[in-house]
């Protein structure tokens, strides 16, 4: 009751004075329910991230004397990284993997499937959607196991090819193609869904008008459909690029980065350094570089989206 006497004069006398501080109080009140979630996020997400940024500048290891007495080494890890042949190799492979499986593979295939499905019978669409999405819902490790049994030396592909006489161990002879194919197979569903949604927004009358004017299927695609869904293309590219950049489980389960370092993308090299050779500081430094690369990619895509709008 005492508090009521303090607050009650307000509505009557001072509307003008009260108005400016209302957003602050209101915002605070609205943020209050978020507070527990924020605390958890800070403790369990921002904390580890900041810690990993910090240890990227130290010689922290998981075992040995440096694991208890790590010291600040400045940019030492980064200098070492750019002189490290294996890191440069992994970086190049990551680039090939992202371009090959995400930007070209998933993106194009997803768009093609979405385009082909336009105007088809419902049954056809559900079957195709079902098959494509099935590849997406299986866990990474299961997808890798499927591809392993398909490509392995005594796998399905070689059984089929045996008659033709060029059976070989594909995971050994063409590991990059193997992981790119597997990732395209698994990830196409996402792009397909994004493009299906985008294509349904392309006005049918526009396309009809174009065909009345005599535009071919190809020029309708290039001059009408693609420009209209450009923003979806950019968002899709951004999402799948970031996802593929960090891809680990599929490659790890399929080739383990091998043979040798032939399919060792940066996330795998990072894992090997951090958890196999216990150089957690060095591994974190690499993670930081990957973070920057990811950020650069997104900035480019975001800029392109804005330029369109």
């Amino acid at each position: 009751m005492t508090s009521a006497t303090v607050t009650s004069p307000r509505p009557a006398g001072s509307l003008d004075r009260r108005e400016p501080d209302r957003p602050v109080g209101g915002a605070l009140r609205r943020l209050l329910p978020l507070f527990p979630a924020l605390v958890l996020l800070v403790v369990f997400m921002a904390g580890p991230i900041l810690w990993s940024v910090y240890i990227a500048f130290t010689n922290e290891t998981l075992t040995g004397a440096a694991s208890v007495n790590s010291r600040f080494v400045g940019l030492g890890n980064f200098v070492k990284m750019f002189g490290d042949e294996d890191f440069r190799n992994s970086f190049l492979l990551t680039f090939i993997f992202v371009i090959g499986s995400a930007v070209i593979g998933q993106n194009t295939l997803g768009l093609v499937i979405a385009l082909l499905q336009r105007g088809r019978a419902r049954a056809v669409r559900s079957v195709v959607n079902g098959v494509v999405i099935a590849a997406w819902v299986v866990p990474e490790v299961v997808a890798a196991a499927c591809w392993y049994s398909f490509l392995a030396e005594e796998g399905t592909l070689n059984e089929v090819l045996a008659g033709l006489g060029f059976s070989q161990d594909w995971l050994y002879s063409a590991p990059m193609i193997a992981i790119i194919l597997a990732n395209v197979w698994r990830g196409t569903a996402f792009s397909m869904l994004v493009y299906s949604a985008a294509l349904s927004d392309v006005p049918a009358d526009l396309l009809e008008a174009a065909s009345v004017d005599g535009a071919s299927g190809w020029s309708r695609l290039v001059h009408i459909t693609l420009p209209l869904i450009r923003r979806s293309i950019m968002s899709n590219l951004m999402l799948i690029t970031l996802q593929t950049l960090a891809s680990f489980g599929l490659i790890y389960a399929l080739t383990g980065g091998g043979p040798g370092t032939a399919s060792q993308t940066t996330p795998l090299y990072m894992y090997e350094q951090a958890f196999r050779y216990f150089e957690i500081g060095y591994g974190s430094a690499m993670a930081l570089v990957m973070l920057v690369i990811g950020a650069l990619f997104s900035m480019v895509y975001l800029r392109l989206i804005k330029a369109d709008a």
Partner: peptide, 9 residues
């Protein structure tokens, strides 16, 4: 060993 086996853990 064949290369694939040589890399098999």
């Amino acid at each position: 060993p064949k290369p694939a086996d040589a890399f098999d853990p």
